[in-house]
């Protein structure tokens, strides 16, 4: 097992290296980070030139890549090219944004797996019942809805819900605009109250989208196991319905769903970016959009490397889980 993990991680190093090189070429050739600065009326060509030299932008791309790579590997991710404001450390801002997005993604995924798997199992056990039709239609609708539409609709109703709370003399609980950056204050109940208020709507938005995928997938795989020979044997032995479904069918039907977990990660991550935009969070989505607008090379590279690493880790986790759940699969 450990050998397998090490081997997989070693394989991903060259992929990450090649990926970083291509990404750097793309970022560097996509646009000039100083274009906006140059367009300002009182900026002379010499000022642009000196800024270029101080930022190292006058060197050829390959050399810049090499400087960036060696710095990156030694832990120095560079600074952002923030014109007119103090430049920030790329590492700090990427990690801060990642932490915001990560909390959102993890909560939503857990909720989606829990809901999706239970709905999928129920729909499979009661195939062609009203519940099944309802779950299937809901899942299809969710598949076909853009994430941001769900977010916008939830936000609208969240505001109305707040209005109702307000009219009843309570505080506005659900937060629909960018959350306070100061952190949480007060006792445990207060913190819980603020925390849930901030997370409820974005988490539901994201969870609804992956819920559709999980419930469909779980239903299909549960149906397959329910019709398999060993489940028929278990029934024929006279085991209770409950035991057959939970012990024999459900356990095995979980296995394919774990692969969905890793495939889904990229989709959920993209969804998180859009959701953050609607709710005004300053996570990875905000960071991406603002650094793309400026063609900020260091920031974009930091962003890309972190997300690429996350994808690799999630794929690895899914493969390991697959091996743990299904002893027939040998990780070698």
């Amino acid at each position: 097992m450990i050998r397998y993990i090490i081997r997989r991680l070693l394989i991903s190093i060259p992929i990450l290296l090649i990926g970083s090189f291509l990404a750097y070429l793309m970022v560097a050739s996509a646009g000039n980070p100083l274009a906006e600065y140059r367009a300002q009326p009182n900026v002379t060509e010499e000022m642009v030139r000196s800024l270029e030299i101080s930022l190292g932008l006058d060197k050829p791309v390959i050399e810049r890549y090499w400087i960036w790579l060696t710095d990156f590997l030694s832990g120095d991710w560079g600074e952002s090219i923030a014109l007119g404001q103090a430049s920030v450390e790329v590492f700090d801002s990427v990690m801060r944004s990642l932490w915001i997005t990560f909390r959102l993604v993890i909560g939503a995924e857990l909720l989606a797996i829990l809901l999706g798997v239970s709905v999928g199992v129920l729909a499979a056990v009661k195939q062609y019942s009203i519940f099944d039709y309802f779950a299937t239609s809901a899942a299809f609708l969710m598949f076909s809805m853009p994430v941001f539409c769900v977010a916008v609709i939830l936000k609208t109703y969240g505001i109305e819900f707040n209005n109702v709370l307000n009219s009843m003399g309570m505080e506005r609980w659900l937060s629909t605009v960018s959350p306070a950056t100061t952190g949480y204050e007060g006792g445990f109940i207060d913190v819980l109250y603020q925390y849930t208020g901030q997370y409820t709507l974005p988490t539901i938005t994201l969870a609804l989208i992956s819920f559709a995928a999980y419930s469909r997938f779980q239903r299909a795989s549960m149906l397959e196991t329910l019709h398999s020979d060993y489940v028929r044997t278990a029934k024929a032995k006279g085991l209770s319905q409950r035991r057959v479904i939970l012990r024999h069918a459900f356990r095995n039907a979980m296995i394919p769903v774990t692969t969905l977990f890793s495939i889904n990660f990229a989709i959920v991550f993209t969804g998180a970016i859009v959701t953050e935009t609607v709710f005004g969070w300053r996570g990875m989505g905000f960071l991406l959009v603002s650094s793309v607008r400026q063609f900020d090379p260091n920031m974009l590279m930091g962003w890309l490397m972190v997300t690429a690493t996350m994808v690799i880790i999630f794929n690895l986790v899914a493969d390991i889980m697959y091996g743990v759940l299904d002893p027939r699969i040998r990780l070698a």
């Binding site: 991903s12 992929i15 990450l16 090649i18 990926g19 291509l22 990404a23 990229a266 991550f269 993209t270 970016i273 991406l288 793309v292 974009l300 962003w303 890309l304 997300t307 690429a308 994808v311 690799i312």
Partner: peptide, 9 residues
């Protein structure tokens, strides 16, 4: 390689 790079970025 293509799968690890987020398409949206």
């Amino acid at each position: 390689l293509m799968l690890i790079i987020p398409a949206i970025a």
